[in-house]
């Protein structure tokens, strides 16, 4: 774990002594499942890396080049019927990186603004059984390009369409899920990106769960990333749900066409959030 993430994680765990979890995300996935339900969630994400690579080859980083990205995610959901809901996701980004200028000096660049805004329409087929519940989801989605100002762009500015498929099954103790997503890139010269997701977890107490999630993302315009780690969540009451998750980078490759494949990996990810449902 990166040393600067450790204090953040420890601090968050101390501030949240009792946490539980929810597969997917506390608001967007499990709830609201009821007709006319709605909610919103805010969570903070932090990523950082100083691992320089060229494709799958690790490079030395004598200049200590690095990046850090802090994202405030603001997300909302409305459920018409249990089989259809809409979600809106707005990520607000503050990112900095160090790069070498044309004279070989290390300079710092910063980018702030909103990343792609995603509008999705999850369609779910639920299976209610004695002491268990499951669902298949198909989610068509569109992402509207965010801020694309140089020198440190947050988004490519293009509007893309995508879809995901997922399956979740839950009993009083066990949680299991798989998912796959695909985005069709509309920007000229850019390749489509896709991702896979698995989760397995344990429901404990009556208010939460502990899960282990693994994500695989391949964006041929940036990087390949395999991350895995725990999630704890807790519903404080029938309205407020909280979640903390950490994913360790297990495998990474870099592609970045503008630098001949050389770049920093995506890095470890820490997310802490709270959601409200009504």
């Amino acid at each position: 774990m990166n040393s600067s993430i450790k204090p953040l994680l420890l601090g968050a765990m101390l501030l949240t002594p009792v946490f539980s979890s929810y597969a997917g995300q506390p608001v967007m996935s499990e709830v609201p499942r009821w007709d006319g339900g709605y909610g919103y969630q805010v969570f903070q994400e932090r990523r950082e890396s100083s691992q320089l690579m060229n494709g799958s080859f690790e490079l030395a980083n004598p200049n200590g080049l690095n990046y850090e990205k802090n994202i405030t995610h603001i997300e909302g959901v409305y459920t018409w019927k249990k089989w259809i809901r809409a979600t809106l996701k707005i990520p607000l980004v503050d990112q900095t990186r160090t790069v070498l200028d044309s004279q070989g000096n290390v300079i710092t660049q910063r980018g702030t603004g909103n990343d792609d805004i995603t509008l999705a329409l999850p369609l779910k087929y639920y299976m209610n059984r004695p002491r268990s519940s499951g669902n298949f989801s198909f989610t068509p989605q569109v992402r509207f390009g965010g801020d694309d100002n140089d020198p440190y762009r947050i988004s490519d500015g293009s509007t893309d369409f995508g879809a995901s498929l997922s399956w979740e099954h839950e009993t009083t103790d066990l949680v299991l899920g798989f998912g796959a997503g695909y985005w069709f890139e509309s920007a000229a010269g850019k390749k489509d990106d896709w991702s896979l997701h698995t989760e397995v977890g344990w429901n404990f107490h009556e208010r939460g769960s502990l899960r282990w999630e693994t994500d695989y993302k391949k964006d041929p315009n940036k990087y390949l990333w395999l991350g895995s780690g725990p999630i704890l969540a807790w519903n404080f009451n029938d309205t407020i749900l909280a979640r903390i998750e950490y994913k360790k980078e297990l495998k990474a490759e870099t592609y970045f066409p503008s630098s001949n494949g050389i770049g920093l990996t995506r890095g470890d990810v820490l997310r802490i959030g709270v959601g409200f449902v009504f």
Partner: peptide, 17 residues
């Protein structure tokens, strides 16, 4: 008796409704 009711968080809607 409710089929599908297996965790308190996803069952919040039952309470609300």
């Amino acid at each position: 008796a409710v089929d599908g009711l297996c965790c308190a968080t996803c069952g919040i809607g039952v309470k609300k409704k």
